[in-house]
Amino acid sequence: MSQTNFNEQSFPKGPITTVQGRCMCLKGDDIDTDRIIPARFLKCVSFDFLGDKVFIDDRFEGKGNHPFDQDINKGASILLVNKNFGCGSSREHAPQALMRWGIRAIIGESFAEIFYGNCLSLGVTCATLPAKEINSLMNATKSNPSQKFNLSLLTKILKGKENTWNINIEKATYEMLVSGRWDIANTLLSEGSKIKSIKQKLPYLNNFKNI
């Protein structure tokens, strides 16, 4: 079975069926992508050096107490969040920074649309849980931060040391991730002839002759 090994900092590849590792909590609704990665770090032509810039202004303000600075969270691979995570700017730099820091799955109450799609494009799993369950998961994580979790996409179960949570994954996301087709460029390109026929049909690409 193909799965990503998080300790080796390898980025998601191929079918994704499991995410394993420690969880870390980042509380708060409406955390926007400007906070995840401030605009000044978008001045780059590659994503390579974004990992340690994640939440940099919040971390500076937190003086070492921000979740992304706490020793116990180093090496965590599952990020727990609340509502509307990743709202605002479409910058893929945000999930890229999280992924390069080591995050492979995000479980939250809800996600902003563009951020969610960007995560899928990178093979980073976004799953949801109702508020109550997120709280219980955050509490479980806090009471034993070193515990290892196993997130099975196939069974949609997140298993901790003592408890399990039934997570929700959108059907389309699920099928893309477990089939490995989330890396979608090849799939899209394989429809070359259909794309061509749409191009020949759309009025605005054909002098409006065929309306």
Partner: peptide
């Protein structure tokens, strides 16, 4: 008008 086709899971 712009739909090329359906992708796994309904996208």
């Amino acid at each position: 008008l712009h739909t090329v086709g359906n992708l796994p899971g309904g996208s």
